[in-house]
């Protein structure tokens, strides 16, 4: 099972846990196969994360330049003073996972932005 941001979820993935709206109302059951329409509906409802079967999203990508990837890289140094503290160790692992997911999510957003027509192209289209 893997908890992923909605923008990393894709049609064909299976829900490992039911999805609820922010107000708590369940909108899809565990075992449901995701479709593009369902993902659009989740987005409109304000759902930010889903939990899916397996580990379909590789989070160890080389997005080394993003803000969150840098945070992930720096965490061991930031937590260097607590090598044997269970509580701080738990926090360290939690934050590492948080930034790993976030970095992957940012990479998807960046890719989508790159694929979209840039402002220059848009202006050219208008001129034409």
């Amino acid at each position: 099972m893997q908890k992923i941001p909605l923008n990393l979820a894709q049609a064909g993935m299976m829900l490992a846990k039911a999805v609820s709206r922010p107000d708590g109302m369940a909108v899809a059951a565990a075992g449901t196969e995701l479709t593009d329409t369902l993902l659009e509906r989740f987005d409109a409802m304000g759902v930010t994360h889903v939990e899916v079967d397996g580990r379909p999203v590789g989070l160890d990508g080389a997005q080394t330049s993003s803000f969150c990837a840098t945070r992930l890289e720096h965490l061991p140094f930031l937590f260097r003073k607590y090598p044997n503290d269970p509580w701080m160790g738990q926090l360290h692992r939690y934050l590492a996972q948080y930034f790993r997911v976030k970095a992957a999510s940012c990479a998807v957003l960046a890719k989508t932005a790159d694929a979209a027509p840039g402002p220059e192209n848009a202006a050219t289209d208008e001129d034409a």
């Binding site: 945070r71 720096h74 965490l75 140094f77 930031l78 937590f79 260097r80 003073k81 607590y82 503290d85 509580w87 701080m88 926090l91 934050l95």
Partner: peptide, 17 residues
């Protein structure tokens, strides 16, 4: 703010939460 390393407080590292 130290986790995100925004600004500089005089040292680098997170304080014990």
């Amino acid at each position: 703010v130290r986790v995100f390393e925004y600004g500089f407080s005089g040292d680098v590292g997170v304080p014990y939460l």
